[in-house]
Amino acid sequence: MARVVVDVMLKPEILDPQGQAVQRALPRLGFEGIADVRQGKRFELEVEGPVDAAALARIHQAAETFLANTVIEDFTVHVEEGQ
């Protein structure tokens, strides 16, 4: 089966306090030099059958209506190669 990955991120203008909390914790753990952290979601979809244009269009639709809330989030869809 082919894997299609949907990455969902808060839009750049939306405050991400979770990302900020992670960013603030990094120097305490000795990881210096990281100016900003944004936290997102990754969905790995195992697709039955061929991942053709029609299948990708369906996944795009699922991402737009369900996996992401496009009021506050952006998403990208890509096929994971080399499995």
């Binding site: 939306i14 405050l15 306090p17 979770q18 809330n69 009021v71």
Partner: peptide, 8 residues
């Protein structure tokens, strides 16, 4: 939309 409270 609703988001996590700003102070977490």
């Amino acid at each position: 939309a609703m988001l996590r409270n700003n102070h977490l």
